[in-house]
């Protein structure tokens, strides 16, 4: 079963996403902040098939986690979706420039929209 890794500091949202992804037959792994995400991703013997990273997190933000992933040979090919609170073009561009496959503004996308994007991005990679 494919695994989705999510870094998000709001336990409420983690609970929602875990339910949605489990209903889609994904395994779900998570980290509650950026530092924990980096440590867990590095330690996972089998790497996830997709990562969803919130930008605003304690200790390390989502962009730093993304940079870490792109600099690591075992993580750099994992597709990444960045979730931001800001709809500024600058923020969205930063995510894409750093190598994210998609950047979504949380306030403009429901959890179901974000899960649909995750399925789409995963599907693209899976069919490659």
């Amino acid at each position: 079963m494919a695994t989705i890794f999510m870094a998000e500091d709001d336990p409420l949202m983690v609970s929602i996403y875990s339910q949605i992804f489990k209903l889609d037959n994904f395994d779900f792994a998570m980290a509650a902040d950026g530092q924990e995400a980096v440590e867990k991703l590095a330690a996972m013997p089998v790497k996830p098939d997709l990562a969803v990273l919130d930008v605003m997190m304690p200790r390390k933000d989502g962009f730093e986690v993304l940079k870490f992933m792109k600099a690591d040979a075992t993580l750099k090919n994992i597709p990444v979706i960045i979730l931001t609170n800001l709809s500024s073009q600058e923020d969205l561009k930063k995510g894409l420039d750093l190598g994210a496959d998609a950047c979504l503004v949380k306030s403009q996308n429901s959890p179901e929209d974000i899960a649909a994007k995750a399925r789409e991005v995963y599907g693209k990679y899976h069919s490659k």
């Binding site: 709001d10 409420l12 949202m13 609970s15 929602i16 339910q19 949605i20 209903l23 605003m56 609170n85 800001l86 949380k106 306030s107 429901s110 959890p111 179901e112």
Partner: peptide, 25 residues
Amino acid sequence: FMVASHDLRTPLAAIKASAELIMKA
């Protein structure tokens, strides 16, 4: 508005998504 956007929308989105998940699944 940045703070309000985050603090209000997140729990609201969670309520909506939870209700929809229950109805759907």
